[in-house]
């Protein structure tokens, strides 16, 4: 269906011969896909390397590490050759716990990220496309969820569910994780909804789901990717907050539960920095990695940012660049309140 493709791409010259059309559309489709991928920049490379490193830790450390629950009689000893990051109060290996905890936090973070993505797509894209009272209702629900403070709500819900498993914890965090992304997606969908090629597809009698999946969603992919990184980061922070006050999963290690045990095992009073520093640093590392990747994705969404990163000659009168500006704010970031 070449007509549809040209329709969607919106950039192919209609006067071209039909024979050229396929190739032209394929070329510009490639160009569009290429345009959606973040440009290779120092930030992207830094972000991806950090995330890759953390992923390696999460995957491989548990395979080689000691049993994380194995207690021994050398409680609260500092880093040594046998215990690279020292031991906890009951003599467990901190490095082994760190590996399992990173894995747990990442699993929870990505699960919540996926659920938030689905929910925000339903509320932000589907509702907006349908329009009318459905849109009004979905927008109202989204705005109400945005204004109700997230962390206190998750604490109240989590406190009333005894003995949560990981799945339950993911569900609880997801309750508040989707609204920010939904608002951003709604704004984008509103602008795409009225564009010519979408109207053309509607008039041609396309099924609404097909219009959404083929005409609208591809244009939202960069925004969705950016919101996804925010959701994952927000979820990892929420999870660590919940677990830190003892409301975490009872069946899985996470960076938050590690901090919970460190705090309750008086790691601070004993000065056991090797116990409470690594989990927080790991969260910060994941956060920095996700933020850097997110910046790179934003350069795709917001052309102003691309201009801003171009080097300008030095020695300007006031020492600043004369470029159009990044108007990115970190509104979409959830989790930490």
């Amino acid at each position: 269906m070449p007509e549809e493709n040209t329709n969607q791409l919106n950039s192919v010259d209609n006067t071209k011969l039909v024979g050229n059309m396929n190739r032209a559309s394929r070329n510009s489709r490639l160009a569009i896909i290429k345009g959606m991928l973040p440009k290779r920049s120092a930030r992207l490379i830094a972000g991806l390397s950090i995330l890759g490193l953390v992923l390696l830790v999460a995957i491989f450390l548990p395979l080689f590490a000691k049993e994380p629950n194995q207690i021994s009689d050398i409680g609260l000893t500092g880093p040594s050759a046998s215990h690279l990051l020292g031991t906890t109060k009951s003599g467990q290996d901190v490095l082994a716990q760190l590996g399992y905890s990173t894995r747990g936090s990442l699993i929870i973070g990505f699960s919540v990220g996926v659920i938030a993505l689905i929910l925000s797509t339903i509320f932000g894209v589907l509702g907006t496309y349908i329009g009318g009272w459905v849109d009004e209702t979905f927008a109202l629900i989204t705005n109400v969820m945005l204004v109700i403070p997230g962390l206190p709500l998750t604490i109240v819900i989590a406190a009333m569910i005894p003995n949560k498993g990981t799945g339950m914890l993911v569900a609880v965090i997801s309750v508040t994780a989707w609204a920010g992304a939904s608002r951003v997606l709604r704004a984008q969908t509103l602008s795409i909804r009225g564009r010519d090629y979408v109207l053309a597809a509607r008039i041609a009698g396309e099924h609404p789901l097909r219009v959404i999946c083929v005409e609208i969603l591809p244009n939202l992919l960069p925004v969705m990717a950016s919101q996804f990184t925010f959701s994952v980061l927000g979820a990892i922070l929420s999870e660590s907050s919940l677990s830190f006050i003892g409301l975490g999963s009872s069946s899985q290690f996470s960076l938050g539960t590690m901090l919970f045990y460190a705090q309750n095992g008086s790691a601070l009073n004993a000065g056991a920095w090797w116990w409470f520093l690594p989990p927080g640093l790991m969260i910060a590392l994941v956060g920095a990695g996700l933020s850097f990747v997110n910046f790179s994705i934003d350069e795709v969404i917001n052309p102003h940012l691309r201009n801003a990163s171009v080097k300008t000659p030095k020695g300007h009168k006031h020492g600043r660049k004369r470029t159009s500006a990044p108007d990115k704010t970190l509104e979409g970031k959830g989790g930490q309140e």
């Binding site: 830190f244 901090l259 705090q263 601070l268 409470f276 927080g280 969260i283 994941v286 933020s291 930490q336």
Partner: peptide, 11 residues
Amino acid sequence: QSVPYFWLALI
């Protein structure tokens, strides 16, 4: 922005 703030308090 991405550091857990209670952890910062611990530090």
